[in-house]
Write a protein that binds this DNA or RNA. Structure first.
Length: 524
DNA sequence: TATGCCGGGTT
DNA sequence: AACCCGGCATA
């Protein structure tokens, strides 16, 4: 538990750090631009964040007041950091005006004084002796009281995440000096950052309690942040979801390449989804190693429309169903059959993700080919029809395997049908043909077929009822094994008329057999 | 070798 | 289209 949480924090913390990072560049403007967008959103939210935000703004409005009460006055001579000229400069407190809440700071480098809001001044002393002080800070704000948060922040200068919520202040305060920050501070700030971000992303998972394990030196953290940003995308999105389906809540595997943009951050967070969302993802932030957690081999499932000459690929099952329904079956919601048929017209595809730097796409991301992903099934060849319950259990299940796994009897049945009702179609000859058949069967032919279905193995032609066509169609698992480049049909395993009936009962043979043609009765 | 079936011929 | 068969491929 603790570890998980801590990991989460770790992740969040990084995010926070990341966001705050821009200040490191010495550009306060950047921060300003980044953050504002966040705030409106925050305010819209109903989550605790919103309240926090409210508090926070208020807080900002009344900063001076708060400061007097909540923040200790800066002592003359105290070493602080302030922003000047877009850079953070070390300075000494000359005077702290509690009334105006301004601090006059002597810039060490420049050699002159400047006035800054107390809120824009970052204490340096803590950094000098980081651990002890910070620990103390930690004690107070355990409860996450938002109002009290500022205190924590104030005392932990290096806390990056604060940035998220506290716009201007954070700018100065967050600039990380390569020194370590306290765990406590990290906790709080990270918490906040995480909350903000997660809330933004609408992630359901935000209520995890603060936790810290991150003993990452701030500097390192900063570095890792960027470094990890890439990974995070990876890990963060963890897996299976990624770009595949936005709607379905599948997470997005984001590109490994790092994007420092805030957008990225939001993206990253939006993707990690629901259930495992943070748990798995947080890992990347565990400082131990940036690299280890690239999920390169995660398998994603996509759904491809099998409608002839369509081949549309969607990430969500819902999407594909809708597509089939609307595009091919027609919207006429008239029949249940249609509904069920939707299932029939798409196939699941296992896609191996290899840390593709693929941009997160929209719901429908047809350009699979372009992605480094390894697609088990070629788009061009409609192949496996997978049952609804088709198991993703066997991710790398090659189509061939599928096809082989298909019960021959089934094929037989199918073929029989074809022979009986759709003589013109050679069943399992090629994937294409197969496809067309299935489609034909599924749509118009089915009704026709079922009644026609005729013989089974038995001599007397006792025809037992086969499952309804539709079910049958669902049973179709894969395309025929056939890929015969060439010419001749591989001899099937099934017994043929000759074997079954014997040569002496040649009259019982199917006509094809009699004609020395491919048996139509016992298809492979 | 038996079997399955293609290609092609005949009706 | 139905029927037939030579001949090849495969088990």
């Amino acid at each position: 538990m603790a570890s998980v949480l801590s990991r989460r924090l770790g992740k969040r913390s990084l995010l926070g750090a990341r966001i705050s990072a821009p200040p490191l560049l010495g550009d306060g403007v950047l921060v300003a631009t980044q953050i504002p967008p966040l705030q409106p959103d925050l305010s819209k939210m109903s989550s605790p964040l919103a309240s926090y935000e409210d508090n926070h703004s208020k807080e900002q409005a009344e900063e001076s007041a708060n400061q007097n009460q909540n923040w200790q006055a800066l002592q003359p001579g105290q070493k602080v950091y302030v922003f000047y000229n877009g850079q953070e400069n070390a300075g000494l407190v000359d005077h702290h005006d509690l009334v105006s809440n301004e601090v006059k700071v002597l810039l060490l480098e420049q050699g002159f004084h400047i006035c800054r809001k107390a809120t824009e001044v970052r204490l340096a002393e803590v950094q000098v002796s980081p651990l002890p002080t910070l620990e103390m800070d930690h004690g107070t704000p355990t409860t996450m009281g938002y109002s009290s948060l500022p205190v924590a922040m104030e005392h932990s200068p290096t806390t990056a995440p604060v940035t998220v919520a506290s716009v201007p202040r954070s700018v100065s305060r967050n600039i990380d000096v390569p020194k370590r920050k306290s765990d406590a501070a990290v906790d709080m700030d990270e918490m906040m950052a995480a909350m903000v971000l997660t809330s933004l992303s609408c992630s359901p998972v935000v209520q995890s309690p603060p936790n810290s394990d991150t003993s990452i030196p701030a500097s390192q953290a900063a570095c890792d942040v960027w470094k990890e940003s890439g990974d995070m995308s990876d890990g963060g999105s963890s897996t299976t979801s990624g770009h595949w389906s936005g709607g379905s809540g599948i997470s997005t595997p984001s590109p490994p390449h790092s994007e420092a943009s805030p957008k990225y951050a939001s993206e990253a967070f939006s993707s990690p989804r629901a259930d495992d969302g943070f748990e798995t993802d947080s890992d990347p932030f565990v400082f131990e190693e940036p690299a280890p957690r690239k999920r390169k081999n995660s398998v994603k499932v996509m759904y491809k429309c099998l409608w002839p000459s369509c081949g549309k690929v969607l990430r969500s099952i819902v999407g594909i169903k809708r597509h089939v329904k609307t595009q091919h079956l027609g919207d006429g919601a008239n029949s249940d059959q249609r509904k069920r048929e939707e299932d029939f017209y798409y196939t699941e595809m296992q896609v191996k993700e290899e840390a593709p730097p693929e941009p997160v796409g929209t719901v429908a991301s047809p350009p699979l080919d372009s992605s480094p992903a390894v697609i088990q099934q070629a788009l061009s060849k409609p192949e496996a029809l997978v049952l609804d319950q088709a198991t993703p259990l066997e991710p790398p299940l090659p189509s061939s395997a599928l096809s082989q796994s298909a019960p021959s009897s089934f094929w037989h049945i199918q073929a029989d049908h074809a022979y009986q009702a759709l003589p013109s179609i050679q069943i399992p000859v090629s994937p294409h043909i197969f496809t067309s058949i299935s489609w034909a069967a599924a749509t118009s032919t089915i009704p026709t077929l079922s009644p026609v279905r005729s013989r089974s193995l038995s001599f007397s032609e006792q025809q037992q009822q086969q499952p309804p066509p539709i079910l049958k169609s669902h049973l179709i698992v894969a395309s025929p094994p056939r890929a015969p480049s060439g010419t001749r049909k591989v001899r099937g395993e099934a017994k043929k008329c000759r074997k079954v009936y014997g040569i002496e009962h040649r009259d019982q043979w199917c006509t094809a057999c009699r004609w020395k043609k491919a048996c139509q009765r016992f298809l492979d």
